[in-house]
Design a protein around this nucleic acid. Sequence first.
DNA 1: TTTT
DNA 2: TTTT
Lengths: 176, 176, 176, 176
Amino acid sequence: MARGVNKVILIGNLGQDPETRYTPNGNAVVNLNLATDESYKDRQTGQMVPRTEWHRVVLFGKVAEVAGQYLRKGSKVYIEGRLQTRKWQGQDGQDRYTTEVVVDMNGQMQMLDSRGDSGMGQGSAPAGRPQSSGYGGGQPSQGAPAQSSAPSGGYSQPSQGSMPEPVDDFDDDIPF
Amino acid sequence: MARGVNKVILIGNLGQDPETRYTPNGNAVVNLNLATDESYKDRQTGQMVPRTEWHRVVLFGKVAEVAGQYLRKGSKVYIEGRLQTRKWQGQDGQDRYTTEVVVDMNGQMQMLDSRGDSGMGQGSAPAGRPQSSGYGGGQPSQGAPAQSSAPSGGYSQPSQGSMPEPVDDFDDDIPF
Amino acid sequence: MARGVNKVILIGNLGQDPETRYTPNGNAVVNLNLATDESYKDRQTGQMVPRTEWHRVVLFGKVAEVAGQYLRKGSKVYIEGRLQTRKWQGQDGQDRYTTEVVVDMNGQMQMLDSRGDSGMGQGSAPAGRPQSSGYGGGQPSQGAPAQSSAPSGGYSQPSQGSMPEPVDDFDDDIPF
Amino acid sequence: MARGVNKVILIGNLGQDPETRYTPNGNAVVNLNLATDESYKDRQTGQMVPRTEWHRVVLFGKVAEVAGQYLRKGSKVYIEGRLQTRKWQGQDGQDRYTTEVVVDMNGQMQMLDSRGDSGMGQGSAPAGRPQSSGYGGGQPSQGAPAQSSAPSGGYSQPSQGSMPEPVDDFDDDIPF
DNA sequence: TTTT
DNA sequence: TTTT
């Protein structure tokens, strides 16, 4: 049924609140910006140097709902998914590629904070999601992680921003 | 020493021969284009649909030498590495990002073909490595890999091509 | 839904043909003895020393059927499952424990041999499994796998052998 | 250098404080009893049933020292290691097998509690840890994990207990 | 661009 | 008991 293996395992912290979107069918699609911290020994200096890597994570289905509801900026989380590279068009008409870690029903998401005291919240209401205007409004995610100029994958609401041109032509469920 | 986890596990086949480059220090750096095949059930049709995902893999150190020497187009391989996103400048001066699976001394590479009967070779001498002039000579790897407009990471030889502007400012070992 | 992670990833070769059994409900349960080979540097001698580790793998459901049908002694295989330790009673009435790698619908099995040229077959019919005398008859599997004195988990046919006392009290499906 | 893969990834909580021992060379060897919690759907009742699996984890080297110093009963931890089955002699002279997850310099251990507020410590003051009343004080971890009767692998101090007969014949470092 |  |  499958002739290959494509698996990603991450433990890190969210750089910002999750972004929740919905497919036309009402299914949640959640984007996370996840930082994994490591340190490595610089060969020149012999010093340990911290290295932070930012990952774009996209969750679908039930795990997306849980992530959207309970995770917050700063939350520590375990992610198991698969690598996927999407092609999209830049505003200049050129092809761009964004690689994401996709978590669907074959993946896994585990919250690693004790009692859901995940991040610090700082204004980002943890439940009920009141926060006025909603996601994506105003400045595009100011605590901006890598690849921030990439579109969120076409699962987005009507993109009122100029570019980089989300695909946004979903007339149905995402097909997996 | 590390406060996060960043791990990728792949099993797939090479879409082309490995590309070997060297750092100024003489260390091998090898790029692979690896295809992982899966299939998923299309929700619309109920049919199983094949899905091929292409991955950019970069190997360093000893594992790079082995990969460069024994892997060929078509080779089946197990890869364990970490995700890393590089920023580079497009010819239009805009930032681009490329995500790669980095395999260094903390990663792993396993050849999964029996007896090194990996690919077919087809002009690319699989054993003994005669091919005098070596890699990268002449045209810069015309069998362009996925995201081919991305530079190969600055580990490349003096890039005589116009763009997409390799970074190529390494005066020493890559620092990990 | 889960508050932990329990994952095993193996690539190795079968030490013998798979052992297929059936639950009262007719579901296949397959046992594998899988060898993983590594080598490590002996601190005393500085020499690389090969190390073979043997694993008991138990597959359920569809993946079990595929394994039973296509894998043979010598087959190379990728396994993704979870660790599980079973308690059983030795013939002396004492508790024993056997740890297995369980592969169910949440796990994965990938055959890594090209074209099913896996093992050698050597009399072990690949399909239909006629071989009258075969497994489980008479002496309790004399081609003894690791931890051979452990029962095969109660998924076995009526165990006529004396001991080590399989549990064998399944009146239904295994519950996962 | 290796022709197989043998990898275990666990996230769980310690059932008791770590047990630290030392090799004759003064290297730390730490044993953990780690519980991973999952839940699965019972096919009979359709109910989600919790399932706790206990794992024996053995750490060597630097990671052992960190584990021994900072982990406590209740600590949440990420473990990456390899499976290893040891043979030992029961008091009845019979062979027994214990499967452990070995974490050495090729493995990884990550503490997942915020700020080292891991467990409760119960008398074994780690460092800085005042631990007022503490969890589970009194009897040392009465919720004894699986395989508790297995010897700790010969890395133990002179075993004054009668059985199950630790091997304890190490005259040097463990060889990996 | 691979593989089955 | 496998494999290279």
